[in-house]
Design a protein around this nucleic acid. Structure first.
Length: 427
RNA sequence: GCGACAGUCGCAUAGCCUGGUAUUGCGCAGGAUUGCUAAUCCUGUGGGUUUCACCCGCGCGUGUUCAAAUCACGUCUGUCGCGCCA
């Protein structure tokens, strides 16, 4: 959510941003109009309250001095005031709620570097890394490799849960754990603190970190408790500082979260998503930074560099793209994706998302830090380090051997007791 | 799950019984003064608005009242005890 002062003082900035995104200005104008009406209503309400407070004081004095006539007169004068205040109160609250409902739907202001484009075709190439592997045979898709080696059981997962769930089996499940341990160690060495967050969140906290439409399309609801399964550890690890005033000496706060992630994937279909590429549950190691506003762009580049270092160490061929206006969500101001090359479908596909959300989440969550001039809003950043299911796909496809077995990346071998090749599971 | 107690400004506290608009300490920031590893004193330190002022704010919500941190009801969270449990 954008700060209300941005609408009062810098509406032209938001409007220019909407022009860049190809959005109309209606919502911005409506927020400004409702805000003006709200301020008027609040002023009137405070006048009425002042009248009541003043009279209450006089009543108190009259009572003390035993002036009963005066007291009765004042009481009859002030009787109706309560209703008036209630009405003004209700009116002002309605205006504020309408204002903020629309305000919440208005996306973050984009960084100047964000390219203009209608969809992912408009994303621009930032850099390319690693060497494209060449094969003396026709490389298989990860789905074929899973079947050949019995590394995943999707039919039985569908039987007990539903489609897009899976049992990971044997060496591939072990590689999944190795990936987690390796990437956690990697991030810990960069002074990120390891966090295991709650896997469910309540509605209030969740509204602070995500686009409201996500409640319909992304998160699973848990009834009757009214909780939501987390779609990423970004959400609990950012929202954990909700309503807090952070000592500036603690900033930047750098966290590496490990958690299962749950996504409904409403509207996602297609042959290209067979196997474990797009699933309802996966494990993700996530970078989080809570930062001073003036440092956040520097941290954004640092997080990207962490990803580059990490994925280079896994010896994966990938590229970095700068996400364009049409492919950007509501919350981020700028976003890089890492896309791994998959020899099976012969495409680059998303494995990492690295975002600076500036103060958009922090405004809603009231996450502030102390300054000599008063409290000011922090910036929040998040980036995938490794989403294990997609990392496994990239490793399987790029490291496949002719017989369908997989070479384990060198840096992961110590986490596999020195094993060099993934062997098939027995069933 | 049951019972008791608790929740007050960044932290810690007083106020609650007996309703009249939040006290004190610490921390932090600014200033003054004196300079012995620093001290002392003053000021400020939740949010909002039409900002020399006013309004709101005592976990959250509702009620009673001219008036609620204070009384009543509900709810959430925490602590302790009991029960259950990996």
């Amino acid at each position: 959510m954008l700060d209300i002062s941005d609408f009062r003082d810098n509406a032209n900035v938001i409007k220019a941003d909407h022009d860049k995104r190809g959005l109309p200005h209606d919502n911005i104008d409506e927020v400004i109009r409702l805000d003006e009406e709200w301020r008027k209503a609040v002023y009137e309400q405070s006048l009425a309250r002042k009248e009541r407070n003043d009279t209450a004081k006089l009543i108190s004095e009259a009572k003390k001095s035993g002036n009963n006539d005066e007291m009765q007169k004042l009481l009859s004068n002030v009787k109706s005031l309560g209703n008036k205040i209630d009405e003004l109160d209700k009116f002002a609250n309605e205006l504020k709620e309408s204002r903020d409902m629309i305000r919440m739907s208005i996306p973050n202001v984009l960084h100047d570097d964000v390219p203009v484009g209608d969809d992912d075709e408009g994303n621009t190439l930032h850099s390319e890394h690693g060497n494209k592997p060449s094969f003396s045979f026709e490389p298989r898709t990860h789905n074929d490799l899973l079947e050949m080696n019995n590394w995943a059981d999707l039919p039985r997962a569908a039987k007990i849960t539903g489609s897009r769930f899976y049992f990971l089996k044997g060496d591939l499940a072990r590689l999944e754990m190795a990936l987690q341990s390796y990437s956690v160690d990697f991030m810990t060495k960069k002074n990120f603190t390891l966090m295991h967050p709650p896997t469910m969140m309540n509605r209030k906290a969740y509204e602070g970190v995500t686009d409201l439409t996500d409640f319909e399309t992304v998160m699973y609801g848990v009834e009757p408790d009214g909780y939501y399964m987390i779609a990423t550890s970004e959400h609990p690890l950012t929202a954990m500082f909700m309503d807090e005033i952070i000592e500036p000496s603690l900033l930047p706060i750098k966290l590496v979260g490990v958690s299962p992630c749950f996504r409904r994937e409403v509207g996602a279909h297609g042959q290209s998503d067979k196997g474990i590429w797009r699933v309802h549950q996966f494990t993700k190691i996530e970078q989080i930074i809570i930062s001073l506003p003036e440092k956040s762009w520097e941290h954004h580049e640092d997080m990207l560099q962490n990803c580059i270092d990490l994925w280079n160490s896994l010896d994966i061929h990938y590229r970095v793209v700068n996400i364009c206006t049409g492919d950007m969500g509501t919350v981020a101001s700028k976003k890089y994706d890492l896309e791994a090359w998959l020899p099976g479908p012969n495409e680059f596909k998303e494995i990492v998302s690295c975002s600076n959300c500036t103060d958009y989440q922090a405004n809603r969550l009231k996450m502030r830090y102390r300054t000599p001039e008063g409290n000011s809003t922090v910036h929040t950043l998040n980036s995938t380090a490794v989403a294990t299911s997609r990392a496994l796909v990239a490793i399987m496809e790029q490291n496949q051997l002719e017989d369908g077995r997989i070479k384990i990346p060198d840096v992961l071998q110590p986490y596999m007791n020195g094993q060099k090749i993934l062997e098939a599971a027995p069933f």
